[in-house]
Design a protein around this nucleic acid. Structure first.
Lengths: 366, 366
DNA sequence: TTGTAAGCGTTATCAC
DNA sequence: GTGATAACGCTTACAA
């Protein structure tokens, strides 16, 4: 009678590494070194002899070993997790690119991004009351969020770097990357005035319809538009606003048709609004740019091929830059308190992309 | 001389909880219970007396205590991290919605999503060779990825649930949510044929230009189109393809202009292509739908307000559903091997959205 | 229902 | 440059 014990049966399975996940102990044994050496070989490769490192890596490879991020996180006191605060869903043109830009830097550095999107006042209040991220993230990135002073004070209490993207003020932030919405609209108005336009409309969403939206950008753009128009004698700004609900294309059409006197040029708060507007206006016989000039904001996916004149911003680059600043702050936090990547705050340029939706003013009565 | 010790100096700071992060020990002390009770109060609230729980929660609140996710993860053996494999950037219409749908389920459940987007063959090979997620994720979600048999075998070796979204085959997956691209194009063709069209073009990207793209969806759609046309006697399918490079609007325009005989209807592989096409074709005098019918795919953000007739899919819902299946698999894994949410594989319906870019065929010579 | 105590798999502090 | 060992902050048998 042949007796085979369970451990004998399973021995080969364990050897093959397909069932059990090898720990650092096993790798140390396999490589004939101590666990500390294995740890160093992964975390601080230059502290071990190249030859030793090779042996460790070979053993790790053989056993299909990977460092446990949880254990490393626990011991090192970091969580390797970054909180990203959004005031809208991640599916928007802007937010998805911010995420991708952040991830392009954070992911290779071993950090995960935990997204908190607060789309209404309740979610927002709960977040700042509970502060669920406390002690569980190494930094907070706040994007396009019209954060209030006591909210940013609450974040500060977590003692981790707070980095802002397109935020109203640098106050309460350790670093930031924000475009100048106000100045950007000024560029648009300058262009239209240079073309001879003097009745210029601005169309955005009604600011009051949800309090947590990226209200800052919206109001800064409108304000920039107003200030720019008012800096030119004879130019009449016509601020119009839309309900968030309903078909944006129709809303813009109605808005423009019912404006009196009729504007000869329109700045739209973003391309997401400008594109349906361009479409519908042409469909209803308005020639663009001959009868009406149009300027968008963002330079999104469709703007180039539709020939939309618009203000260009690059949220992917902004996200990447913000992530770099964040990592610099995280590492400086522990060692050299002042070695963070300078400058801490940056303002990327917004560029007017001249395409086919603006043209010189022509007097319709002439 | 007054001597004040450091600990005296800092005492009040620690009390206020603003500098040091309280651990579970401190909460236990504050609440007058053991650490296990504190742990249970958070993780398994129904295992402690309501009264005790209250005391614990009050103490935790007072000390600003939050569970350390790293420590909980280490001890429990889970990582509370999900890998999401993408074959394109997360910024696409489809992927950003998949992410948002997954996150809507994973985030509340305490899981983070770690995105791995493989946009070229190198990245893809490295990922499957290294398998950096091994031992560090609780599940893998694969989205719109034309995964190969030996790749899915490698994933299987990790012993965590593998869930697919819009994948070519359920083989190697524990659960999945995929639309039927083939059947969807059949619906589009049925519609056009019913309108009297018989020279119908399909425009997609050249499949060969990057091997890692979501080739499966692309080829399945084309195949569905071909099969559908061929099922109707007298209907001529005209498969055309585009370079990925250059302005899509111009590419589509050229493609259609140079096709001979001229098609009376066109199916486009997605709305991202259909929208610039619609725009440019109208700009160049082609009346749509009178001269040419157009059908897109996706029903994206702009399709409704542009009046684009298109095939509707809902990636957000697919992501949410996939996440639910994933969580079911994770918890069944440890306990009841068969209690996973049934059915494990689902095929959401794709719906034709009839709008304003298709019309009955009119003989141009009549 | 609650407490005691033994780890989970790393990293860090020492020696050597 | 490398090795022994003590944490890190939780969870979970098991005991009470």
């Amino acid at each position: 009678m042949v007796v085979i014990s369970l451990s004998q049966l399973f021995h080969c399975h364990f050897q093959e590494g397909s069932v059990t996940q090898a720990s650092i102990q096993a790798v140390a044994r396999e490589a004939g070194v101590s666990v500390s050496t294995v740890s160093r070989a992964f975390a601080k490769p230059d502290l071990v002899l190249p030859e030793t490192r090779e042996r460790v890596m070979a053993a790790a490879e053989k056993l299909n070993y990977r460092i446990s991020r949880s254990a490393a996180a626990l011991k090192s006191g970091q969580s390797f997790r970054i909180a990203l605060l959004l005031s809208e869903s991640i599916v928007t043109w802007f937010n998805s690119r911010i995420y991708a830009g952040l991830d392009s830097v954070f992911h290779p550095a071993g950090y995960d991004i935990s997204v908190f999107s607060m789309t209404n006042a309740d979610e927002r209040r709960n977040f700042f009351t509970d502060l669920p991220v406390r002690r569980n993230v190494d930094a907070v990135v706040v994007s396009s969020f019209n954060i209030e002073p006591d909210e940013s004070r609450k974040l500060k209490s977590m003692n981790v770097p707070i980095v802002g993207i397109n935020i109203p003020s640098n106050n309460g932030f350790d670093a930031g990357v924000s475009i100048d919405d106000h100045a950007a609209e000024h560029i648009a108005v300058d262009h239209l005035v240079a073309l001879g336009h003097h009745r210029i409309a601005y169309i955005g969403y009604d600011e009051m319809d949800d309090r947590s939206a990226l209200r800052y950008s919206a109001s800064a753009r409108l304000q920039g538009f107003m200030d720019a128009c008012n800096s030119y004698p004879g130019v009449t700004p016509m601020p119009l606003s839309l309900d968030h609900a309903g078909d944006p294309a129709n809303a813009v059409l109605n808005c423009i048709i019912s404006a009196s006197p009729a504007p000869s040029a329109v700045c739209l708060c973003d391309d997401e609004l400008a594109i349906p507007a361009l479409f519908r206006l042409r469909q209803y016989g308005r020639r663009i740019p001959q009868d009406l000039s149009l300027i968008g904001f963002d330079d999104n996916l469709y703007a180039p091929s539709l020939g939309l004149t618009t203000l260009h911003q690059d949220p992917y680059a902004m996200g990447a830059k913000a992530a770099q600043k964040t990592l610099a702050l995280i590492s400086s936090d522990s060692k050299h308190p002042s070695a963070a990547a300078e400058p801490r705050f940056e303002t990327p340029q917004v560029q007017l992309m001249l395409r086919e939706t603006t043209a010189p003013y022509v007097d319709p009565d002439a």
